[in-house]
Simulated scan of single mutants.
Amino acid sequence: MKYTIENEKLLISVNLTGAELCQIQSVQTGKEFMWDANPDVWASYSPVLFPVIGAIKNGFVKYNEREYAVPRHGIVRNNPNVKLVRKTENSLTFGLQYDDVTLKIYPFKFEFQITYTLYDNRIIVSHEVTNHGDEPMLFSLGGHPAFKCPLSDDEVYEDYYLEFEQVETESTWLLEKDGLVGNHTKPILHNTNVLHLNGHLFDHDALIFKTLKSTQVSLRSTKSGQVITLHYADFPYLGIWAKPNANFVCIEPWLGIADNADSDQNLENKEGILNLESKAVFKALYSIEISE
């Protein structure tokens, strides 16, 4: 089941399973901006990442001397127990709350909500995490939206580039074969705000940036001039990824990161982990801006 809302500029749809944004369409032109989740390539549109991001070392984390097998990217992605909390003329809110099943793989009494709000030519993606437990709660969260690339039939992948808000000199942290973050880096941005796309850019998996100055990045075409801009000021980490030679690109804002290869697997020591006090609420948002 999916839910749809629209305004005078954009139509969006969200799958109930996983609360996954699955469509961004121009109302005026009918143009689609989201990847189509072709199962032969990558069968997702925009996974919601909570309470972990990416791979977990050996498939489990440790907390209070117990082991918890948290799935890769967490427990919201592909989850059929997500509920529609609220639908308004311009927003959709979905939620997932702890139960006996989640407590076996993630030891905290959480409530997670994600809201998609249409505002003019923007989709605002708002996250709200509540700690219903009596102890501090440890978690990460992030987005994984996949955008169609190229956007037009008369373009190719190499016509596109990413334009960062600021000039950057930044390296990517290299992933090991099991998806863990290694201790080696590779220079990617050299005093520039432009990263050109090509079919081999992701041959060694995602680009992972930890210290970008920019808080927004745009997917641009040298031919059509169309622009998709992701604003991510609340998210200190950024991932860029696609399957090699696939016709999409993911721009991923993260609060947290995959496990380090030398991780001790203790959740409290995990890089980028957030600490939420008992009964407290955490909020963070990013937005997707469509310019035609």
Rank of each mutant, 00 (worst) to 15 (best):
L96R: 08
S126G: 05
E89I: 13
N90Y: 12
D100N: 14
L138V: 02
N121E: 12
Q113S: 12
N121T: 10
C149V: 03
V129M: 03
F139C: 06
I105Q: 15
T117R: 04
F110K: 09
G95L: 06
E135H: 12
D120E: 15
S126P: 03
H144T: 01
I123D: 05
D100E: 15
K148D: 06
T130D: 00
T102N: 08
Y119D: 12
I114D: 08
G143R: 02
H127M: 03
P136M: 02
M137S: 04
L118M: 09
L103C: 14
M137F: 05
H144C: 03
Q97K: 15
H144Y: 06
P150M: 04
V129L: 04
I114F: 11
P150L: 03
Q97A: 11
K148R: 14
I114K: 15
N131V: 01
D134H: 07
R122T: 09
L138I: 05
F147C: 00
L92Y: 10
T88W: 09
D99F: 09
Y116K: 05
A146C: 13
S140V: 04
L138A: 00
D134N: 13
H144V: 02
T117P: 00
F147V: 00
K109V: 07
F108R: 07
F110P: 11
T115Q: 15
P136L: 00
N131C: 08
P150G: 00
F112A: 04
F112K: 01
P145F: 00
L118Q: 07
I124Y: 13
D120T: 08
D134I: 04
H144Q: 05
E111R: 05
Y98L: 05
Q113D: 14
K104L: 06
L118D: 02
Y98I: 03
A146R: 08
L151C: 01
F110H: 11
F112L: 07
D134V: 00
L151Y: 02
E135K: 12
S91I: 08
D100I: 12
P150H: 03
H132A: 03
E128N: 07
R122D: 12
D100H: 11
P136D: 09
R122V: 00
G95T: 11
T102G: 06
I105L: 12
Y106Q: 00
H144S: 02
K104M: 09
E135S: 10
I123G: 04
Y119T: 07
V129Y: 02
H132N: 14
A146V: 01
I114Y: 10
E89K: 15
A146N: 12
G133A: 03
H132S: 06
P145N: 01
I123P: 01
V101A: 15
L92T: 06
H127N: 14
E111T: 07
N131Y: 05
F108P: 10
G142I: 07
T93A: 13
N90R: 12
L138N: 03
K109R: 14
V125T: 14
P145R: 01
